[in-house]
Amino acid sequence: MKDFIEKINSNYGVDKTAAEELLNNAEIIHIPKHSYLVWSMVDITILFILFVTAS
C-alpha cells in the first residue's frame, strides 16, 4: 500500500495520509483483460439487439 500511495503522490502530488484515507474507503475490483469498466450506449444497444434477435 505504501508504494502505491507513493505512486499516487508522484502522479498527483497529493497528501499521502489523505490519499491513504481515500483508498481505505474504496474497494478493490478486478477487471479481466478485454472486459469493460464502462460500456458505451453503442455497446449496450448492440447487446440489446443481439438479445432481442436471439430470443
Binding site: 474507503n25 474497494e27 478493490i28 478486478h30 477487471i31 483483460k33 478485454h34 464502462v38 460500456w39 458505451s40
Partner: peptide, 14 residues
C-alpha cells in the same frame, strides 16, 4: 465512451 481493460486490471473503486 467505453472503458476497456487492455490487460488484467485491478482498481480502487468508490
Amino acid at each position: 465512451i467505453g472503458i476497456e481493460a487492455e490487460t488484467d486490471v485491478s482498481v480502487f473503486a468508490i
